[in-house]
Design a protein around this nucleic acid. Sequence first.
DNA 1: GCTATAAATGAAAGCGCTTTCATCATAGGC
DNA 2: GCCTATGATGAAAGCGCTTTCATTTATAGC
Lengths: 329, 329
Amino acid sequence: MATIYQVSELAGVSLATVSRVINNTVPVREATRLKVEAAMQELGYRPNSVAQSLASNRSNSIGIVVSELGGPFYGELLSRIENEFRAAGKHVIIAAGHSNADLERDSIEFLRSRNCDALILHVEAVDDAYLVELAESGLPFVLINRMVAGIEERCITLDNEQGGYLATEYMLQQGHRDIAYISGPLWKHDAQERYNGHQKALAKFGIGENKALFYEGDFQETGGVNGFNHLREQGHTFTALVCANDEMASGAITAVHEAGLDIPEQVAVIGFDNINFSHYTHPKLTTIDYPVAEIGQMAARWVLKRVYQRPIEDLQALFIPQLIVRDST
Amino acid sequence: MATIYQVSELAGVSLATVSRVINNTVPVREATRLKVEAAMQELGYRPNSVAQSLASNRSNSIGIVVSELGGPFYGELLSRIENEFRAAGKHVIIAAGHSNADLERDSIEFLRSRNCDALILHVEAVDDAYLVELAESGLPFVLINRMVAGIEERCITLDNEQGGYLATEYMLQQGHRDIAYISGPLWKHDAQERYNGHQKALAKFGIGENKALFYEGDFQETGGVNGFNHLREQGHTFTALVCANDEMASGAITAVHEAGLDIPEQVAVIGFDNINFSHYTHPKLTTIDYPVAEIGQMAARWVLKRVYQRPIEDLQALFIPQLIVRDST
DNA sequence: GCTATAAATGAAAGCGCTTTCATCATAGGC
DNA sequence: GCCTATGATGAAAGCGCTTTCATTTATAGC
């Protein structure tokens, strides 16, 4: 691999000038630039990014922590983020936190030790205090899908409560009054907020809460299966089932079929997230759209603007979910 | 951030000794090691990985190119690879090739300029010659799901032909004789191989090929829908439908339902890959298992052994697919 | 106790680049 | 044509670490 020194020698200029041509920082005379470019061409020169990082104290890499690498939700998120940074000549280093506080902290430390210029975090388990402290340490990062007091300007969120409200409100508008709810783990912020929305909608229609119609699942498919079965065993009939995400809705649909019931005639089902496969279910799943691609893009642009001083205007911090009506309601 | 110099000063030893403690290369006297460790602790020292990379000419990063970041297949693959490397203190840089030759080449160049120690490639569009040349350039890489002559020792593959064979053979064993086939794009190696397997199974049962029962899809869900509709229009009836991947099978299932036909009574459907959602379909999809997690892990271990000299024994290059029988056949 | 050998440590030269500061060249103002 | 302001270029000092080679210290053998 050719080095900048060889280029400078071949072009008959100093290292500094070659560096200037590469980085386009200080103006270089046209004739000089051409000489240098020709030399780079001839040697097949490509800058050593590690050396650049060391000298400039910029690694041009952005660390990402998500709960899982697999799955449609994170796939879409990562895809969009990578795209955005790639176009800017940055690269992403990805680590999985598995919704576990220790692993999340580990991941963050790991990325930090990799000299990332910034972090994009979708963490669920670490507590607010840790994040506030992290912010104070001077490391730039943006938080996805979580609002933490004290560092609001770093948070990009979906209005989960509004989404939960929309889902249940729609069921109510369709005439349902006995509405069961399968929640995510309530220690997760988004699960709690979606559930709040559900309660709000019920309250608006003057319906009290019924513990027999609530089940706390795990955001997984099996949680949906177990949830539906559990709810039926409670003996309280219901004609509508609101699930806090699509995975659980899918599981619930399977369980409903197995119970010999028809969807939506006997039980209407709604999910949340609008992940890719949600139209693979049968019947196709009505759900709340989570604009994951937009949010991913926004997080990337946040970093581009704040850390790399790119001129970006329209930073948006709060996203509003939308109802997607399909065949399961 | 503390530097190695400060540590050496506080511990009263030289830079070199601190470096030895960090890297555990040359033995250091117990007493000295303890002094150094205490100093590192006190300063909250963490080595600067960029400087390490520059000095050692090792970036401890591995580049990965996959077609897409989203989707269950790549998610699982990436997840496994990341896991394996993380445990080894390495990190991965991920780029998407989008099944497009230019983008694939771009991605590879990009990763290369990032000084990756090795690459793991799941590329479909670049030609064999390019890969052979890349190998000659000295950059270590391993190729997933593709066998290229001349660099066989870098290839980790699934026996796609065997998988295609298994799928169709199963249909034949179930008594089907009119079997339609929805293929992936035949320019993709795996699509071609799976189709070869299909033809082999037919031949074994003495059944000739019928062009009216073949459709070349795109490995996407819509390809399955279009494929089924196209096949029906050909007028040649069939009782079984073999799809070259699960996505298309899922689309086909939707189309079959829409045509008012029952699965598997009127049309049996089989997929390929056994991706996560294949049991979300209704009825649950019979398919061929693609051991994506194992393959990802193996690719990572290949790198660990060949590039980082880790003592790893059981490198496996060829994987054999298996039939997973569910309810769609 | 002294030398021969091995083990532990230190000094210093890079790794390939960026960036500051000084220098040189060019052009404009009078 | 001389002086100054400005733009372009070069010299050289790092960035924080690894690694070679030399040196010092410990261990063993007699």
